[in-house]
Structures are given as C-alpha cells and as structure tokens.
Design a protein around this nucleic acid. Structure first.
Length: 362
DNA sequence: GTATGCTTTCGGC
DNA sequence: TTACGGCCGAAAGCATAC
C-alpha cells in the first residue's frame, strides 16, 4: 500500500522564535543559551541561528567558546525561554494537525504526519498540501519550517533534513532508492558511529552500498535484527505507522551543582527544589510513576544513573525523598569521581484515568 | 531460542 | 589550551522465565 508520510521540522527553532519576537535580531548571530549559573558564562549553546553557524557555532558548544568564535561580530546571547517555545510549538502543531490525517509530535520542534488519505496517495497533491502547511506556519507564526515527504518515516525524516532551512523535499516511492543511494549510512535513523564503523569495515559507506549488500553477510557481521532493519531501512521501506502520542513516557529534572562534590547529601539538598518542581508537575497532571531514577553527571561529563522500580504506581514523589537520597548515595559510591550535575527522573508513567480503567478488571 | 521486564547508556535536539 | 545543559525517546545490556 502506498503511503504519504511527512516530517516537519521548525528551523533553528528557539533562535527563530527569538527573532520573531525581536526582528532587530535578524542578520546578527543569535545564540539561545542555557546558563548553568555556576560562573558568569558557564553553560552551553542550545540553538544558534544560521548567521552564528557560519562562524562554526553549534548546539551543545560551551558559551565561552562560542563567544570566542564570535568576538567582534555583534552577536546576541539570549537565555532560553522554554515557556514561550512551548506555546509557539503548541500553536504550530495544532495548525499542522488540522491539515493532516494523523500527527505524531516527536519533539518541541518536529513531527511526523500521514497525509495518505487527504492527498489521495498522490504525491503531486501531497506536495501542494505540504507547501500549504509551510505557508500556514509562516503566516500565523512568522516561522520557516522544512518539510520532507516520502513513503515511510525514514524517508520523510531524511527528506526534511535534505534542504534546510525553509526546504520542501518530495521523494516519491519511485525515486526513493535513487534519493537515498548517495547518502552516508549515518543518515539512517538508528545508525550511529558504532554501526557506521562496522559497516565501513565491510566497505559500506553509502545507503546505496548497504542496499546492494548481501543480506546473509550483513546478518553474520551485525546480527539478525540489525541486519533485517538495515536491509529494509536502506530501501526506505520501514512500515512504522504515524501514531498520535498521548503524553510523555518520562519526566526529569537535572541541575548543575554550585560546586563539584562526592557528598550525596549535599547533592540531594541542592536537588530538592527541582524534585519539588517535578512533584508538582506530576500532581497537577494526575500522573503516577513506577520507576524512579537519579542521574549523576560527573566531573569528566560522563553520565551515571541508578534506578528502582516499584510494584505499584506511585502518586506522591515527595514521599520518596529517602529513596532519592539512597539512589544518590549508591551513585556516589560507584561513580569514582565527583558529581558536577545531578538529576531525578520518573518513568513508567500512568495517568489516574488509566489506573481506574485498569482496576475495573481486577 | 524467545519473550519479558528492569537498569543503564546513548544520542538527538 | 580549556571551556560544558536540560531535557527527551530509544537502544543496549542483563537477568529471568518459559
């Protein structure tokens, strides 16, 4: 069955929202930053606009390094305004949702959609629909977006990335193999540096190399599951449906400590406000959880976690302070170096509605 | 072997 | 020369049960 799947990606999202709110920023390097508060400029760049990227600035780069690269360039450094981005995202997603059959939001600035029905499975009609979505986003929010269309999620995602910013890339089913062929295997979702290296050892560098490679040999080298996945992915033939997501599957907060420490109690005390905040989020959403985790980012920036899962859903995170403390102590004991940042995460979430409907069966 | 559940790590944005 | 967040979802790793 021929499907028409899309992927929409809002360009350099946080920085673009800042530009919309303050048009005088346009043309300047704009960097939306997370200031950790430890020292004057400690923290990283969350998003840089394309002007800043010209100078080698990237997401995740330390702010002080970005400042060096942009010395004398009239660059603007703005702290993140999460609530604003959430609000804009909600508006955009609602608007897109009205124009497609199914919308699957996968992040604050991106979503998959299915327009098989509304396009009548016609890629020419689909192109017009996608162009309409871009126009609607621009007219209502002043934002540019990049959209890719293809026969599957994999193709749509790669297509949206193909032409940025403000791109529209349509990959028909017939042109899929030709489109994917020249691209490096790293472009495939699920292929990271490790798999790419294993493939390179077999002489496979492009998706085209992969598509024409003998499946049996792939199987021997990489295992059955990976081989099967790569075989279909290289042809853009994955069958993953676009499905609406009901809510997050995990919630977390993480903070940067005022100073590095191995002392779990000191870290716990500093984590308390974030933990309370997470508690309030859970209560106001009526969300329970079964798994509790602590996260430690050590001085070498490596990440360690400790978690525990309860038999029954827990509603009240504030009752688990001793568990959190205990997990942090276990982390500290096994970490071997000081904490730089610590965090808390809850997962295996359920809503109150879910639980009552489940209890009806018992 | 395969399915399942839990813990930990990885990697995208 | 170094510099360094805060989230999220999914994969990987591991143990246990059938």
């Amino acid at each position: 069955m021929v499907r028409v799947i899309g992927h929409v990606d809002l360009d350099y999202f946080y920085a673009q929202v800042e530009e919309v709110e303050n048009p005088s920023l346009r043309g300047k390097p704009v960097l939306v930053c997370v200031f950790s508060g430890r020292t004057e400029d400690s923290g990283v760049v969350s998003t840089a606009n394309y002007v800043a990227r010209e100078f080698g600035v990237r997401s995740g780069m330390p702010i002080v390094l970005a400042k060096k690269k942009l010395e004398g360039r009239d660059a603007v450094f703005i702290p993140v305004h999460d609530e604003r981005y959430e609000a804009v995202s909600d508006g955009v997603m609602q608007l897109v949702g009205e124009r497609v059959d199914v919308l699957e939001k996968t992040g604050i600035d991106e979503a998959f959609f299915d327009i098989t029905m509304s396009s009548g499975a016609d890629y020419s009609v689909a192109r017009t629909l996608a162009a309409g979505i871009k126009t609607a986003i621009r007219e209502s929010h002043g934002l540019s977006a990049s959209i890719g269309l293809g026969r599957s999620k994999i193709v749509a995602k790669i297509a949206s990335d193909f032409m940025k910013p403000d791109g529209l890339t349509v990959v028909t089913p017939e042109s899929t193999v030709e489109f994917l062929g020249p691209l490096p295997v790293l472009k495939l979702y699920g292929v990271g540096p490790k798999t790419a290296e294993a493939l390179a050892a077999l002489g496979i560098r492009t998706i085209g190399d992969l598509a024409s490679f003998d499946v049996g040999s792939l199987h021997e080298r990489l295992g059955r599951k990976t081989a099967a996945y790569l075989h279909t992915a290289a042809r853009g033939e994955d069958e993953e449906p676009v499905t609406e997501r009901q809510g997050p599957t995990q919630l977390s907060r993480i903070i940067t400590l005022k100073r590095n420490t191995r002392d779990a109690d000191e870290a716990f005390n500093e984590l308390m406000p974030a933990m309370d905040d997470l508690h309030h989020r859970l209560v106001s959403n009526g969300t329970s959880f079964r798994t509790l985790s602590t996260i430690g980012v050590l001085t070498d920036l490596s990440v360690k976690t400790k978690s525990k899962t309860f038999e029954n859903p827990v509603e009240d995170l504030s009752l688990l302070k001793d568990d959190v403390r205990g997990l942090l102590q276990a982390l500290s004991g096994s970490a071997g170096r000081e904490f730089r940042r610590v965090g808390i995460r809850v997962s295996e979430l359920s809503s109150k509605g879910d639980q009552t409907s489940l209890t009806q069966f018992y």
